[in-house]
Design a protein around this nucleic acid. Structure first.
Lengths: 242, 242
DNA sequence: CGAGTCATTGATCTGTCTCAATATTAGTGG
DNA sequence: CCACTAATATTGAGACAGATCAATGACTCG
């Protein structure tokens, strides 16, 4: 156990309603504590794991905010997701026993390290946990299906509206405001995620602001007219935005 | 058991090297036979399952060719994947116990129906099967990450090159030619998958043909200069194109 | 307070879309 | 077997959303 890791328990974690222990009985949750080997701190800008790294563990985010991204040989980068507290990252590594993307902390973060062998062992013992693991993976597949719809079919304004609605919704589920937020990512990162250039993100923010739908000041965003935003992008179509 | 379903065994299926039984011992494979409840025939144009349908089973494709697609309320459709023999579909249904996409047969097909409760039960018993299920899901996640890169960053020519290379590779793994193929989908379906319009697909086919890289005649495609095609899209970047 | 990062805005360019016409193929029934 | 129809594919011309290039402004953090 190194400096930036230490032992911890799921059973008294305040994220247990969102994270791994969902649906487990208190007694079973004690067992789940065995899954989490340690926690690990990740400073802003640091990688939790990177492309090519050996896959050993899944990570449950306790605090902080991550992006996952892939880049190909000619240097183009694609942000594949933004993850916040209670969400699980590292699933990409299972298939080849190597990670195929980079997970970078966009603010100082802490994750629970769950060695995948523990996860598999315990989920053989607890059907509820097994089902939960399957749901986490399935949710990611469905989310990415929705992203394909966005990237393949939607205009810049729709994409940004969808992005903002999804983000506040997830923040709201974690006890934050349902109208205000501080973005943890740059315009360039949003653009990469949405398949647009940073200038287009900036312009689209300005347009939504001019239309009185949102208020933007740099990283601060307030949704003034949620219904107008939903008219631009109807979130019905995205069933599984966590 | 209805007319178009009947009992069958994995242990003597000629797809066992590609499909579910990978890595299982012969003895264990007998057990896997229990997972597959029945087979089901799906005629060209028919749905195997559709958005909103209750999720009960995963499906292993024995013969035929499928597309999966989602459509939102304003009628826009996004093809999220094309699947062939040995591949598993239905994973999208796990998270909500309802399917969130449509799976449509693009040619007469036959699938093995694997009730998900059987899959979970047996994978609690057989770590090898458990791992395999996890890999199948992880592979899909990684594939979709690659799609996001395509849709977010690549030009039409690159997308089509990637698509063709991926398709022949998968067909080749199934014993077909590594240079020739008959496409089972329309230009519109390819376009939807790649985030382009059908006219752009047609034009890009024509361009690759004019450049002497491929030969195209309607649904027939022959890759004349695979290296040129790989120069347009380097498949290194796509690690997990099945 | 100053350097570097990040964001905004304008002007122009371009890849893909849209609209439209034509060509090819597959399917159907006489 | 052929004519007819519907579905699919090709190709052209013009339009447009978003990209690119460039300049300025605002914030952050040591």
């Amino acid at each position: 156990m190194t400096d930036n890791t230490f032992k911890v328990a799921c059973s008294n974690c305040n994220l247990r309603e969102l994270c791994m222990p969902i649906g487990l009985e208190i007694a079973d949750m004690k067992k789940l504590d065995e899954v989490v080997a340690t926690r690990r701190q990740v400073k802003q800008g640091q990688r939790l794991f990177g492309n090519g790294d050996a896959f050993t563990s899944l990570y449950a985010i306790r605090t902080g905010f991550f992006k996952t991204c892939i880049s190909n040989e000619d240097g183009r980068e694609q942000v594949t997701g933004f993850q916040m507290a209670g969400e699980i990252i590292g699933l990409d590594g299972i298939v080849t026993d190597q990670h195929s993307c980079n997970a970078v902390a966009l603010e100082d973060a802490e994750v629970c390290v769950m060695p995948f062998s523990n996860v598999e062992e315990l989920s053989r013992e607890f059907p509820v946990l097994q089902r939960h693991v399957h749901k986490v993976m399935s949710r990611e597949i469905v989310r990415e299906n929705g992203m394909m719809m966005m990237l393949g079919n939607m205009r810049a304004e729709e994409r940004l509206a969808a992005f903002l609605l999804n983000l506040v919704q997830r923040l709201h589920a974690r006890g934050f405001s349902q109208s205000e937020m501080i973005l943890r990512m740059t315009r360039e990162e949003i653009g990469s995620y949405l398949g647009l250039k940073l200038e287009t993100i900036s312009r689209t923010f300005s347009k939504l602001s001019d239309d009185g739908i949102i208020e933007v000041k740099q990283r601060y965003v307030k949704i003034l007219a949620p219904d107008e935003l939903k008219k631009i992008f109807n979130p019905q179509s995205c069933q599984t935005c966590i």
